[in-house]
Design a protein around this nucleic acid. Structure first.
Ligand SMILES: NC(=O)c1ccc[n+]([C@@H]2O[C@H](COP(=O)([O-])OP(=O)(O)OC[C@H]3O[C@@H](n4cnc5c(N)ncnc54)[C@H](O)[C@@H]3O)[C@@H](O)[C@H]2O)c1
Ligand SMILES: NC(=O)c1ccc[n+]([C@@H]2O[C@H](COP(=O)([O-])OP(=O)(O)OC[C@H]3O[C@@H](n4cnc5c(N)ncnc54)[C@H](O)[C@@H]3O)[C@@H](O)[C@H]2O)c1
Lengths: 216, 216
DNA sequence: AGTATTTTGTGAAAAATTTCACATTTCATT
DNA sequence: AATGAAATGTGAAATTTTTCACAAAATACT
C-alpha cells in the first residue's frame, strides 16, 4: 500500500503542483496530475485516499492546500539538516548544489579524511572526519550523504549511525547494511547506466523484430 | 515479468557474483545470491528461469558462466560509448569517475555551452555544444548523460535524440519526454532525499508507537 | 551400487499493486 | 430551483509480482 513507489509518486505530484501553481492554476484534477507524472487518474485518487487527502467532487483539489498536505506527509514542513561525508567529486558537487536549500534541505557541513579537502571557513565548511561524531550530536543531525570510496562506505555508515544518524543516502556502489532504527537508500549510477543500456537494447530489438519482443 | 526491478536485480546479482568470485568461490547457490542482494532464493531462481538461465540441481550455478550470461543479457558484453552534456558540477564529477570504464562504459567526450568549460585536449575532451550532433553521428553514440540546468534539459534531450541518441540518463529534476524509439531514465536526487526523509519519519513514529505504524 | 541429502525449476497460491467502473456529490447553467 | 455535466472516492476486478512447495535431478556418503 504505502510503498516506496507510492511515496515517490507523492513527491512527483508535489513537483507537478509547484509547476502548475507557477503557471497560475489554483485548482487541479486527478487527470492533470496523472498526465503530469505519467500514471492513471485513478492511481492519483487512490494514492490520495490512502493518506486521507480529499478533494471536492467536480471541484478537484485546491493546489495550495494539496501542496501543504503533501509537504506535511513527506515531512517537508520543516527544514532538514544533512551532512556530507566524503567531499571528493560527487560530494563536492552536491555541496555546491543550491537547490536543495530551496527545497528545505540544508547541507550543514562536509567531512573528509583528506586534509586537502578541509575548508573550515567556507560557506559550507568541510571538517576533518573525526569531528563528525560530535557535530552530529551537537546539531542533532539525522541525515547524511555518503560519498566516500566503496571500501570505506560501510565503516563510515556504522560510525554515523552510532553517532545518531537515522537516514543515509549512499553513493558508493555497495548495498549498505544498517541496523533496525536506521535506513539507507543506495544510489548506484553504474547500475542505472547498465539498466538504461538494457532497455535501449530491448528497444533496438523491437525495431528489428516488433513481434518477438515485449514491452519495456 | 521482465520488468525494471527484475533487470535491476540482475545487475545486483552480477555485482554480488564478482565479489564472490574475488573471494575465491567458483559456484554459487540461489540462497547465496538471495542473501547477498536481500531477496528470497525463489526470486533468484524465478528471475533466472525468466531468462533461461539454469544451474544444476544440487550443484548450483557456475560463477564464471553466470557472470558471462548476465553480461550478455544486460548488453555488457561490449563496450558502450557515452557522452556527457553539461559539464558543470555533476557532469564533471561523472567525467572524472574512472570506474565506469572498468565496467565497460566509456565516456567519450563532454559538451557544454560555456566556453570556460571547453577543454579539447583533455583526457576526456569537452567540446562546444554545437559539435555534439556531428560527434554523435560520426562516432555512432547511442547513450548520453544530461547534466544541464532543468530549463535546458528537454531541449537538449530533443536535440540529442534527433542526432541519434537512443538512451538518456537525466540528472535534471524534470521528467524528460521522449519519442518512441528512445528512452530516458531520470535521476532526481532531491526526490531521493525527500523519500529518505519520509522513511526516517516513519521509523521514528514506529519507535514512539510501535503498533500504529506499518513497515517501510 | 544404493541411499540420503541438497538444490534446482516451476506450476500454483498468495500478496501487492493498479485499473475499472459507477454511485455520489458538487458545480454551472438555465 | 431544477437539470445536466463533471469529478471524486472506493469497492471490486484485473494484473503484476512474489513466495510457496514439491517433484525431479545431481551430488555425497556409506
Ligand atoms: N564521481 C562519480 O561520478 C561517481 C559515480 C558513481 C559512483 N560514485 C561513487 O561515489 C563515491 C565517491 O566518488 P568520488 O568520485 O567522489 O570519489 P573521490 O575519490 O573523488 O572522493 C572520495 C572522498 O572521500 C574521502 N574519504 C575517503 N575515505 C574517507 C573516510 N573514511 N572518511 C571520510 N572521507 C573519506 C576522500 O578523501 C575523498 O575526498 C565512490 O564510492 C564512488 O564509487 C562516484
Ligand atoms: N550538482 C548537484 O549536486 C545536483 C544535484 C541534483 C540535481 N542536479 C541537477 O543536475 C543538473 C546540473 O547541475 P550542476 O550542479 O552540475 O549545474 P552546473 O550549473 O554546475 O552545470 C550545468 C552545466 O550545463 C551547461 N549548460 C547549460 N545549458 C547548456 C546547454 N544548452 N547545452 C550544453 N550545456 C549547457 C552549463 O554551462 C554548466 O556547465 C541540473 O539540472 C541540476 O538541477 C545537480
Amino acid at each position: 500500500m504505502k510503498n516506496r513507489n507510492c511515496i515517490i509518486r507523492l513527491s512527483r505530484y508535489k513537483t507537478a503542483l509547484y509547476r502548475l501553481k507557477a503557471l497560475g492554476f489554483v485548482k487541479v484534477f486527478s487527470d492533470n496530475l496523472a498526465e503530469a507524472i505519467g500514471v492513471m487518474p485513478s492511481q492519483v485518487r487512490k494514492d490520495f485516499s490512502l493518506f486521507g487527502i480529499s478533494g471536492k467532487k467536480r471541484g478537484g483539489y485546491h493546489i495550495d492546500a494539496l501542496i501543504e498536505r503533501l509537504n506535511e506527509i513527506l515531512g517537508k514542513d520543516k527544514v532538514h539538516t544533512v551532512i556530507i561525508v566524503g567531499c571528493g567529486h560527487i560530494g563536492s558537487a552536491l555541496m555546491k548544489y543550491r537547490k536543495f536549500e530551496d527545497g528545505g534541505i540544508k547541507i550543514a557541513a562536509g567531512f573528509d579524511i583528506d586534509p586537502a579537502k578541509h575548508a573550515q571557513d567556507a560557506d559550507i565548511p568541510v571538517f576533518p572526519i573525526d569531528r563528525v561524531k560530535p557535530f552530529i550530536k551537537e546539531h542533532n543531525v539525522e541525515l547524511a550523504i555518503i560519498a566516500v570510496p566503496d571500501i570505506a562506505a560501510q565503516q563510515v555508515a556504522d560510525m554515523l549511525i552510532s553517532a545518531g544518524i537515522k537516514g543515509i543516502l549512499n553513493f558508493a556502489p555497495i548495498r549498505l547494511r544498517c541496523p533496525e532504527g536506521s535506513i539507507a537508500h543506495n544510489i548506484n549510477l553504474e547500475l542505472e547506466l547498465e539498466n538504461l543500456i538494457y532497455f535501449v537494447n530491448v528497444l533496438k530489438k523491437k525495431r528489428v523484430n516488433p513481434d518477438e519482443t515485449e514491452n519495456a
